[in-house]
Design a protein around this nucleic acid. Structure first.
Length: 641
RNA sequence: GCCGGGAUAGCACAGUGGUAGUGCAGCUGAUUCGUAAUCAGCAGGUCGAGGGUUCGAAUCCCUUUCCCGGCUCCA
């Protein structure tokens, strides 16, 4: 048999080559590993391959390549840590989507200075360019080896590996348990950076010991590393907590309590604008708007099952006239009660109740985070009561509606997940089947790509989650659509069918933005605080050059205000440069400049947020332009005017 | 909740045991000015809270609240 290798180059090009030519291709493509007949292998293992095989060369540019690259870097880091701190015990050190980490057990915590030392040592290890050498040994041998080295976490991991033979990797005298593959040599690591230290439980279980996790990232060139570090800077600049303070949008107060948001006027007007939009669109989509109380009798929550399933997230009951009441963590039982306030006919269905419902949930103190994770928040909630045969159609409607709302804010790329039946569930298997299929069908009919999250559904029904991608391509989960068989059962919700008998409706829970607080936080970061005109707290600022222009400016201001524009006027005794700077820092979309020229012509000059000057306009022309931009909810300032 | 770090004027920060500081913001005055910061003066602090050590604590110790980075969890 002829020795032919089917080679797949990193760019996807296929070639048939002689084994002797392989090395040349590896070198020229800068491959760091290879897939042999679909299995990931070290470069070194390719030597002497003489049979017909298919070899795909892997470089950093592929997802697998990055993973191998960063995983190897984490080994180098562990090596450096062991060199500097021999008492440290190693746990696990995998690659992540953006980098890598290594969990380490050591009595004294690592300091930023330690990180510098570790980085320095890593550079030395990389400079030595020692090869990563794989060795296959028996499991018992391996356990003994790691026990002797004092690496009891590794020994524990080994106990659970079912195979008899395991692989270890050695590099410059440093040995680690590892499935591989790895870079051929440490010198392949071209650019890396240690980023942070944090606590992490051994195996992610809070009952276990807290270890120290060192995070880092690695790239195959300095430019990409720097680009990534710049991205992290950009994320910091956009932090909604920072922008929230700078733009005076919201605050948290020690005196009020953690996880409870104060919406300042600038944030509140944005929220009001979003709420108005939300309500208008819901009415158009044939939803009915509800308002319901913030507390209800404990009994209600017992009946709904929340008291059993959700108690950890609920606040302690309060006694009112010897009856226990609970702060609501969800809106559903209230909507059910409204449904039940009358006898319902099959002709009425679907009934769609929507509410901007404020709920309170206990979140552990360590997880609170600005607007993104809070204890009191307003859900853009709705519950749809429908017949079984209406589910698919309703889901289709909701999907359209959701994507429309999200697109309005500039979110047009999504990851969609379909979560199926978990181990603990209620309801008949057959219903689960039907509902899951209805969700699938709807997604497929919309041509929406989705992933299945097996077993990740809620105990009462399957669900669709939509994760949006923001302008930095980060994913956020906001929208959720959940089918529920449980609550209609528990509350004995019925409708009268065409047969005159009682039937059980299906309930669909759905939220589009999720929580207004969280969505607002995401919006702030998505826009970097530069809100589109329709959302901007101050849409136009009228600035004067000198005091003699005040009267004319006040007239302009009055006209704008009376046209429904959110406008302010700055009559301060300051130079125009100062006023423009102040307005620019506050990211105000349009500045109306009034000086001698404008007063004499009876017109206005406009400076756009991006620094561009437009005009002169008559005030009516300008109002025409911006009211149109507001009406369209345009995402960026109109290019021309 | 857990591990680590932190809290000093409205904001951003300096201050390692000996009289609490800087910049911006604020107030007052001067300046009347054409596209990202005019100048001068003034005022502003229980140094997160409580306790302790000390002749003396923003500084050292303990407790506590809150914040930050993670873990776990989630909208």
């Amino acid at each position: 048999m002829e020795d032919i290798i089917k080679l797949i180059l990193p760019d996807g090009l296929k070639k048939e080559i002689e084994p002797s030519e392989l090395k040349k291709h590896i070198d020229s493509s800068n491959a760091i590993a290879a897939k042999v007949n679909g299995e990931l292998k070290d470069i070194a293992s390719l030597d002497g391959l003489s049979h017909q095989s298919e070899i795909e060369l892997i470089t950093f540019s592929s997802k697998e390549g990055k993973e191998i690259y960063r995983h190897s870097t984490s080994h180098v880091m562990a090596h450096a840590v062991k060199d500097l701190f021999p008492d440290a015990k190693l746990a696990i050190g995998p690659a992540t989507d953006e980098g890598f980490y290594y969990d380490i057990d050591r009595d004294t915590p690592f300091t930023p200075e330690d990180m510098e030392k570790i980085e320095k040592r890593m550079k030395e290890i990389i400079k030595k360019n020692s090869p990563f050498v794989r060795k296959d040994i028996s499991k018992t041998e391996a356990i003994e080896l790691f026990k002797k080295m004092g690496e009891n976490y590794k020994a524990e991991l080994l106990q659970e590996i079912p195979d008899d033979s395991v692989s270890i990797y050695e590099e410059g005298g440093f040995i680690d348990l590892c499935r591989g593959p790895h870079l051929p040599k440490t010198g392949k690591v071209k650019a890396f950076k240690l980023l942070s230290i944090a606590g992490a439980y051994w195996r992610g279980d809070e009952k276990n010991k807290m270890l120290q996790r060192i995070y880092g990232t690695a790239f195959d060139n300095k430019e990409d590393l720097n680009a990534y570090l710049n991205f992290l800077e950009e994320v910091k600049k956009r932090d909604h907590r920072k922008l929230g303070r700078e733009l005076d949008l919201f605050s948290l107060s020690d005196d009020i309590g953690p996880g409870l948001i104060l919406w300042h006027p600038n944030g509140a007007i944005i929220r009001k604008t979003i709420e108005d939009f939300w309500r208008d669109e819901h009415l158009k989509a044939d939803y009915k708007i509800l308002y319901t109380p913030h507390i209800a009798k404990l009994n209600l929550w017992q009946r709904s099952g929340h008291w059993d399933f959700y108690r950890d997230n609920m606040y302690s009951p309060m006694e009112i006239d010897e009856v226990s009441y609970e702060l609501k963590p969800m809106n559903c039982p209230f909507h059910i009660d409204v449904y039940k306030s009358a006898l319902r006919s099959y002709r009425e269905l679907p009934i769609r109740y929507a509410e901007l419902g404020t709920v309170y949930r206990y979140e552990r103190s360590g997880v609170l985070h600005g607007l993104l994770r809070v204890r009191g928040f307003t859900q853009d909630d709705a519950h749809i009561f429908c017949r079984e045969d209406q589910i698919e159609h309703e889901i289709l409607n909701i999907l359209d509606f959701t994507l429309f709302i999200l697109r309005t804010f500039g979110f047009d790329s999504y990851d969609i997940y379909l979560s199926t039946r978990p181990e603990k569930y209620v309801g008949a298997l057959e219903n689960w089947e039907k509902a899951t299929n209805a969700l699938k069908q709807a997604l497929e009919r919309k041509g929406l790509g989705y992933q299945i999250d097996p077993g990740e559904g809620v105990f009462y029904g399957p669900k669709i989650d939509i994760k949006i991608k923001d302008s930095l391509n980060r994913s956020w989960q906001c929208s959720t659509i959940q089918v529920d068989f449980n609550l209609p059962e528990r509350f004995n919700v019925t409708y009268r069918g065409s047969d005159g008998k009682e039937h059980r409706p299906i309930m669909i829970h759905r939220a589009l933005m999720g929580s207004l607080e969280r969505f607002f936080g995401i919006l702030i970061e998505h826009y970097a605080g530069v809100f589109p005109l329709w959302l901007s707290p101050v849409q136009v600022s009228v600035l004067t050059i000198a005091e003699r222009h005040d009267d004319y400016a006040k007239e302009i201001y009055k006209i704008l205000r009376e046209s429904g524009i959110r406008v302010e006027i700055v009559l301060e005794n300051e130079k125009i440069g100062y006023k423009i700077r102040e307005a620019t820092v506050r990211k105000i979309p349009y500045l109306v400049i009034i000086g001698d020229k404008e007063v004499s012509e009876g017109k206005i000059t406009v400076r756009k947020r991006n620094g561009e000057n437009i005009g002169p306009f008559t005030i009516d022309e300008f109002i025409g332009i911006i009211t149109e931009e507001i009406r369209l909810k345009a995402l960026s300032l109109l290019p021309l005017a």
